[in-house]
Amino acid sequence: MPTDHEPRRKKLKLRAWRRGFREADLILGPFADRYVPDFTESELDWFEIILDQPDQDLYGWILERAPTPPEFDGPLMDRLKAFRDIAHKSGPNG
């Protein structure tokens, strides 16, 4: 029986856009808009845990200024890191 994750998806997208750390918002918000609608349940779990991490830590991992802890490293973090370049090129209105 399929589970409707739409309320959870909306909440995660809102959290991604409203972290209070503008630089992270401008990467995580568009990333969430683009990918969260198609995330599986396990991907939603990962993203939710990622959003619980301190802003400075998460931003450092995304920019590769600090090593990503093994528990967060993997294909989804790789996708997020690759997306930062797309978000940076398109700017806040892109």
Results as ranks from 00 to 15, higher is better:
S90G: 01
R22K: 10
M77G: 06
D73N: 09
G20Y: 00
L26S: 04
L12P: 12
K81L: 01
I49S: 15
S42M: 14
A82K: 13
K81F: 00
E43K: 06
N93G: 02
D33Y: 03
A82P: 10
T3V: 08
T3M: 06
D4G: 08
G91M: 01
D85P: 05
G29S: 09
L51T: 02
L80R: 01
D52F: 00
W46R: 13
D55G: 08
R34D: 15
H5L: 11
P67G: 07
H88G: 01
I50L: 15
L14N: 13
S90F: 03
R15V: 04
P7M: 12
Q56W: 03
S42E: 15
A82L: 13
K81R: 10
D33R: 04
N93K: 09
L12V: 06
L14E: 15
G91Q: 01
P37A: 05
P70Y: 04
R65W: 02
F47Q: 11
E71T: 02
P7T: 07
P69V: 00
G29K: 09
D4N: 15
D78L: 07
H5G: 00
F72V: 03
F83I: 11
P70V: 05
A16G: 02
L26P: 09
K11M: 14
P2W: 00
G94Q: 06
V36Q: 07
W61N: 11
L51I: 05
L26E: 14
L26Q: 12
F39A: 10
D4S: 10
L76M: 14
P2D: 00
D45P: 01
Y59W: 14
R19G: 14
H88P: 00
K11W: 10
W46F: 15
F31Q: 15
L28C: 09
A16P: 09
L28S: 07
R79C: 05
A87Y: 05
A32H: 02
K10E: 15
R18E: 12
I50P: 13
P92M: 04
A32R: 06
A82I: 03
L26G: 03
R79A: 11
P37K: 03
A82Q: 14
L51P: 10
P2N: 00
I86Y: 12
Y59L: 15
R19N: 12
I86L: 15
R84H: 06
D25R: 01
Q53Y: 06
A32C: 08
I27E: 13
R65E: 15
I62L: 10
E71P: 05
R19E: 08
R65P: 02
P30G: 08
D33A: 03
P7R: 11
D57Q: 13
D33V: 03
R18I: 03
E64P: 07
Y35A: 01
R18Y: 08
L63F: 02
S42R: 13
E23M: 05
I62W: 04
A24H: 06
G91F: 00
R22C: 06
I86C: 05
P54G: 04
R19I: 07
L44G: 01
E71A: 10
R22D: 11
W46N: 12
G94C: 04
G60M: 11
G91R: 01
L28V: 02
S42H: 13
M1C: 09
I49A: 15
L12N: 08
L51W: 04
K81G: 00
F31K: 14
R65C: 04
K89S: 09
R84P: 05
L12R: 06
R22Q: 09
T3N: 02
D25T: 01
P69S: 03
R15E: 15
I86S: 08
D52T: 10
T3F: 02
A87T: 08
A66T: 09
